[in-house]
Design a protein around this nucleic acid. Structure first.
Lengths: 162, 162
DNA sequence: TATTGTTATACTCTATAACTATA
DNA sequence: TATAGTTATAGAGTATAACAATA
């Protein structure tokens, strides 16, 4: 348990971190809002998945997820395939175009972070990543639990279609 | 300079941290959205200030700031006093009601963080705060520079009116 | 009857541009 | 002419609730 002041400082930072995110996404293509970028990044990292799981990973309601995915599907970045094991469900997977789009985004992200964080060492960034991962886990553990099996399996399957 | 993967991970965390912020603000009173809470917190921390400075601290456009402040002023939490030294400017200050509202918010924040971060030590939180402060500074230094003099002066003046 | 996903509606937050009042 | 702040408008993100289709 920490002092009240530390909590208040953390709250201020959390509320201010949105500016960092905004700044970072300024370099994104106009038709690819941050939410779409998140969809692509998660499909790339975790591979093919259903809507409900993507919603869990993004920690937003499935109704919202549905619209984000629709946006990416309209641009041909993601395909919604029928789930052979459940007719209600749809399997999302990154297309070739989606992968290319993600490359563009990744380049913009890296470029921005390299310039902003030029005086951060590798270890600095690794430490920050570690703490943010733990922070998100601490919050995640107290709410809609993400199904374990979520470990980023290296053999993430992707859509094979063009 | 760090590996591309570290930057991508950081980008994912930054995009995911919004969920933490949302979770935290669920305990807030209905008529006090997070942006209003931020206004009150900053006026408390830094004391009386003009619109333009608040906009810099929140890293949002002044037009947006103006509406957030209007929301808090309508509820009697903040007063917009004339600036004796510049007729175009307005000095914002927290009212007594605003301070009480902030107490309520602070209680909700502390309660939420205590429960979510129950297994974090004081040092853990201090380290996270330190890294977030540095992160925000790294981004801030590359854009509209916040005027130095921004150090949280302990003698932050507040509105004396009821 | 319960669950998966979609759509409709409403609210919050942000940015740009046009405007006013003062410097 | 330039600056401080406000307002109008538009776009992105989210949540809730009602709905369709399938389990």
């Amino acid at each position: 348990m920490a002092a009240r002041g530390s909590y208040e400082e953390l709250a201020r930072h959390l509320s201010g971190i949105g500016a960092v995110r905004r700044e970072m996404s300024r370099g994104f293509p106009a038709d690819c809002p941050p939410a779409s970028a998140a969809v692509l990044a998660l499909l790339h990292k975790y591979g093919e998945m259903r809507m409900s799981r993507l919603a869990e990973l993004m920690v937003i309601d499935m109704s919202v997820t549905s619209r984000h995915v629709a946006h990416t599907a309209e641009r041909g970045w993601v395909e919604r395939l029928p789930d052979p094991r459940d007719g209600r469900s749809r399997l999302l997977c990154l297309t070739e175009r989606g992968r290319r789009q993600l490359d563009t985004l990744s380049e913009a992200t890296t470029e921005a972070l390299e310039s902003f964080l030029h005086d951060w060492t590798d270890d600095d960034i690794a430490r920050l990543n570690g703490m943010l991962a733990r922070l998100r886990e601490s919050f995640g553990d107290c709410r809609a639990r993400v199904t374990r099996q979520d470990t980023p399996h290296p053999a993430a399957r992707h859509c094979s279609r063009k």
